[in-house]
């Protein structure tokens, strides 16, 4: 009976779970070698809250569009660069609040947010569309080259026709 109840609980949890995306900025003071460790820790943290990772991207250093300020343990610090990364995962709605509270306490984060999102990969589709548009342009250039050859053939035919006309 217990196993049945456990199975029912699991089904309920799956029904309540939604797809979320965690977008975050890590402090640039972390060394590049150590970024993998903090990235791994974040993944483990999500898994420990019963989350399933759908897709993610490694944190990469980016230059920020404006200077960010953060006060941590009475030290005010400014950031012009940060490691930007994101993780998509499915999780129970109540667990997400706990995850947020946990990340709030982490000093390695400059900023972060958790969004409700779709499971599908949204970025790749857009890139494909742009790539397609670039490919569309190239055949038109080739066609103009073909037309020149056609015109040269036409010239000979026209000359013959003119000769024939003159002969008449």
């Amino acid at each position: 009976m217990e196993s049945m109840q456990d199975a029912e609980k699991e089904v309920e949890q799956n029904a309540n779970s939604r797809v979320y995306e965690l977008g975050y900025l890590l402090v640039p003071t972390i060394k590049e070698e150590d970024i993998v460790i903090s990235y791994g820790n974040l993944k483990e943290l999500i898994l420990s809250f019963g989350g399933e990772i759908v897709s993610d991207e490694m944190p990469k250093i980016i230059s920020l569009a404006y200077t960010m300020r953060k006060v941590a343990s009475n030290v005010r610090s400014k950031f012009n660069t940060a490691y930007f990364g994101w993780i998509k995962f499915t999780m129970n709605a109540q667990k997400v609040l706990e995850l947020k509270k946990k990340i709030d306490l982490d000093p390695n984060f400059v900023r972060f947010f958790i969004l409700k999102t779709a499971k599908e990969n949204t970025i790749a589709a857009k890139r494909f569309v742009r790539g397609n548009m670039v490919h569309r342009k190239s055949p038109t250039i080739k066609r103009s080259g073909d037309n020149k050859e056609v015109i040269s053939i036409n010239k000979d035919e026209i000359d013959k026709e003119i000769d024939a006309m003159v002969a008449v």
């Binding site: 977008g23 779709a118 949204t122 589709a125 857009k126």
Partner: peptide, 14 residues
């Protein structure tokens, strides 16, 4: 027109 169903905050070029 470009068949984009979900507008992503990461796609800054768009």
């Amino acid at each position: 027109a470009n068949n984009i169903k979900y507008i992503d905050y990461k796609d800054i070029e768009i």
